[in-house]
Amino acid sequence: MVQEVEIEFKNLLTYDEYNRIYQFLPFKSVELFEQTNYYFETKDLKLREQGAALRIRHKNNKWVLTLKQPHSEGLLETHDELSPDEANLWIQNKTTKKPDVAKQLNQLGVAEDELIYLGSLTTRRCEVDYQDTTVVLDHSLYYGKEDFELEVEADTYVEGDAVFSHLLKELNIPKRPTDNKIKRFYQAKLESE
């Protein structure tokens, strides 16, 4: 089973703050890339109620189905690769059973045929390695909205928190409570209905 624990720190940014971080770290030397997340949920929001989220991400010509669940140190991610045809079927609400994600969904009391496609969020992303972490700048577009975000991904909570706090302090950026992308996506979807 392909699983990993994701430890990350997030902060929404203004466009100015985004540019400050972009200039401060060597982002000019890395390529900006685009990824799209396609989100799924049950009609009665079973995943959301359990703090879980399900997406297909299209990045670098790969399609990956990922279930995110709460974990004591961050989020537990379970992955299954999809073919382009399988991904297309999922987006048309014709889900196919994928072994690792299906096992985790079953533990949450969710069947694949209950899942419905909600919509997509596209992110323009750049990443740099910095002090044993990965620092990410995201510009995301969804439901007529856009936002800018700093993410620090680390192997341990202590490392990630130290780098995250250092960057915010060094660049005089206030720490803001920041929902993850799927929560921001849900909010924008509700506002658009």
Rank of each mutant, 00 (worst) to 15 (best):
I7H: 00
F9N: 06
T14C: 03
Y15G: 09
R20I: 05
Y22G: 08
Q23C: 10
F24Q: 10
P26Q: 10
S29W: 13
Y38L: 00
Y39N: 00
Y39T: 01
T42C: 05
D44S: 10
D44M: 01
L45F: 15
K46H: 05
E49V: 04
G51I: 01
A52K: 00
A52R: 03
A52E: 03
K59A: 14
K62M: 09
V64K: 09
T66V: 07
P70S: 08
S83H: 04
D85S: 13
L89T: 12
W90F: 15
Q92A: 14
N93E: 12
K94A: 07
K98E: 04
P99C: 03
P99M: 03
V101C: 00
Q104E: 15
N106L: 13
Q107P: 00
I116Q: 08
I116F: 05
L118H: 02
G119I: 02
T122D: 02
E127P: 03
E127L: 10
Y130D: 02
Y130V: 05
Y130E: 03
Q131S: 08
V135K: 07
L137H: 10
E146I: 07
E149G: 03
E149N: 04
E153D: 12
D155M: 11
Y157P: 01
E170W: 03
L171T: 12
N172A: 13
P177E: 14
P177C: 08
K181T: 08
F185I: 07
Q187P: 07
L190I: 13
E191S: 12
S192A: 15
